[in-house]
Design a binder for these strands. Structure first.
Lengths: 149, 149
DNA sequence: CAAAATATTTAAGGTACTTAACTATTGCGC
DNA sequence: GCGCAATAGTTAAGTACCTTAAATATTTTG
């Protein structure tokens, strides 16, 4: 194997080619699996995850997801209707509502997370330890570049 | 820095944590940038890319994108309305229509691609050559695992 | 040639996003 | 303290995108 191509342009093209397709597969896996069992979508799953991880206000989630407050507000409406999230007015600032997961949501989240993990695990099980290390390192790099700062 | 964690579980969690967020950022970048200039969405951009790369039938694209034929058919409707795609009945099998990009679509695709590239390039410009190499290798691994096979 | 299979579209329904306009609350300047 | 801008969020209208089920058209098969 030759020296791998590492120009900036090549890296960009690589990301632009692979990430959309990988995302399509993950979404498809998620749909095919336990999702329908609980009737939530991948987007709803991620919204629940953000709340679980401490994004308790509409604005926080909008910032993380990079969408409008409006979009989050409507997404939360659906989750409230489904009995997964509650809006509680108990903070000092009465303009904002603290979002909380219901006990049911915790179960849904756990089960979907496990199911999701199992699917991805199966996909990447064939990788060598070295290959896994590369993927993990890459995720850390992408996280630092795209999400932080 | 210690030996990086490379268990299968860790790799799975790493993917599940980072990919959704990176995807959110890419979509957001795409929207913020030249997209609105041409009035296409990220999904439409990828549909055009698939046609450009030789997926000329509804079924092909559905397979690549992992969605229903129905979804593709409707997405193509929009693209036809926008003057970006034509449906031509010229193959041997008259049930399928060959999808083709209009000259205008090629320009839209080129310009959006460049704009998109510029944004991602800016994000990852700070990476070292070694870090870029890791990202590129990782994309090749993910491509092999998720898309082929 | 009838029946099954294939490729696609249409229809109905829900989710997900946008911008713009609106409500409610907070906090600042005077 | 009062007025007003800023902030947090929702509502409204409109588009896109996806699903399943049913319909249409064509090809293949027995």
């Amino acid at each position: 194997m030759n020296e791998p191509e590492t120009t900036l342009e090549f890296a960009v093209d690589s990301l632009l080619e692979v990430l959309p397709s990988v995302w399509d597969r993950i979404r498809s896996n998620f749909r095919a699996a336990g999702t329908s069992k609980f009737g939530i979508t991948l987007e709803q799953f991620h919204t629940l995850r953000h709340i679980y991880k401490g994004c308790c206000y509409t604005g926080d989630i909008a910032e993380k997801r990079q969408v409008s407050c409006s979009a989050v507000s409507q997404a939360v409406d659906v989750l409230v209707t489904k009995g997964l999230v509650t809006r509680a007015q108990e903070s000092g600032d009465r303009r904002q509502f603290r979002l909380e997961l219901t006990p049911y949501a915790r179960r849904v989240l756990d089960e979907n997370y496990m199911e999701n993990r199992a699917l991805i695990k199966q996909k990447i099980a064939r990788l060598s330890r070295e290959q896994r290390a590369i993927v993990v390192q890459s995720m850390e790099i992408l996280k630092a570049v795209f999400i932080s700062a």
